[in-house]
């Protein structure tokens, strides 16, 4: 398979600050998730892939061509920026129509594509309202619409699910999955693991400017599962619960905190949460709070980089 998106030892510095370090990627058709906490270098990578930034070192190739100062290539690329920025005094329709005209489409074709894209992201009906009056979700969907209105082969979407409500997220996820058809190459970034998981199994993990894992999300999850998870519980009888939990083979450690707070470590998070409701019923406990202090992407990355 010839990679559609290819980077070789790609590095980017902002003065003394390292944005990206020797990133080598090969991405083919289908959906690929780029996962990383805020500040990991996802947006830097995406800006390098779309020719907005020049590499400090290394190369970027899209469909076999260099991307910096190669405007013709943008007929084949759609890009959804991370920033919530627009030409605010235009309507959704004018915005999209104008951008399509920049692609060289004639008036009739631009109008047809504008309507089609706005219908796809469910903004048609509000197309003549000023963008400054759009909700966050509508603005996010409009950004996605401008990325796909010219029907590109390569879609680069920087945090397209940011700021959307659960229903909005579901719609965009469905849309991105539908776009996969037609042999498109779609790269989607996110800092939320379940969002990427809902989109694809093929992911790249980016941390502090470096790719630290690549491949099937389940393999990476297994890798993560090899490390203990921390769960904090607050209940009316923590000692009774602790005694019972220590009988479970997947519970490794239990620690008593103030105000009935119980912090425990488990090497099988799914098994722990699966069995917890039965345990609560069995012991007749009142659980006030359950949190996973390390159930976030940063903790996952900390595990992977061995912190």
């Amino acid at each position: 398979m010839t990679p559609v998106i290819q980077t070789r030892k790609l590095s980017k510095w902002y003065g003394n600050i390292l944005g990206l370090s020797e990133v080598s990627l090969e991405i083919g058709p289908g959906i690929t998730g780029l996962l990383g906490p805020n500040g990991a270098g996802k947006s830097t990578l995406m800006k390098l892939l779309t020719g907005q930034l020049k590499p400090s070192l290394g190369r970027v190739l899209l469909a076999g061509e260099g991307v910096w100062n190669n405007p013709a290539l943008f007929r084949r690329i759609g890009y959804c920026p991370e920033h919530d920025s627009f030409y605010e005094d235009t309507t959704g329709r004018q915005f999209l129509d104008g951008l399509l005209r920049l692609h060289g489409f004639g008036a009739a074709e631009a109008a047809r594509r504008t309507e089609s894209a706005l219908r796809l992201v469910e903004i048609w009906g509000d197309e003549n309202r000023l963008i400054r009056g759009y909700s966050r979700g509508m603005r996010q969907r409009l950004k996605v619409a401008q990325a796909l209105a010219h029907d590109p082969e390569i879609l680069i979407l920087d945090e397209p699910l940011n700021g959307l409500d659960p229903l909005g997220k579901r719609k965009i996820i469905r849309l991105i999955k539908e776009l996969k058809a037609g042999n498109r190459t779609i790269l989607v970034s996110s800092h939320v693991l379940p969002e990427v998981e809902a989109l694809t199994r093929d992911i790249r993990l980016l941390h502090q400017g470096k790719i630290i894992a690549a491949g099937d999300i389940h393999d990476i999850r297994d890798l993560i599962d090899a490390h203990p998870h921390v769960v904090a519980l607050r209940c009316d009888r923590p000692r009774k619960l602790a005694a019972r939990l220590m009988e479970e083979p997947h519970v490794l450690k239990v620690h008593f905190g103030p105000d009935g707070l119980l912090t425990l470590e488990t090497d099988n998070r799914d098994l722990f949460f699966g069995g917890l409701p039965a345990l609560v019923v069995e012991l007749d406990l009142e659980i006030e709070e359950i949190t996973s202090p390390d159930d976030n992407l940063q903790a996952v990355f900390d595990y992977l980089v061995g912190k």
Partner: peptide, 15 residues
């Protein structure tokens, strides 16, 4: 400053 440059730079339009 308006961060709209990305829309312009990702079109088939020379700088």
């Amino acid at each position: 400053e308006g961060r709209t440059l990305a829309y312009l730079l990702t079109r088939p339009l020379s700088r």
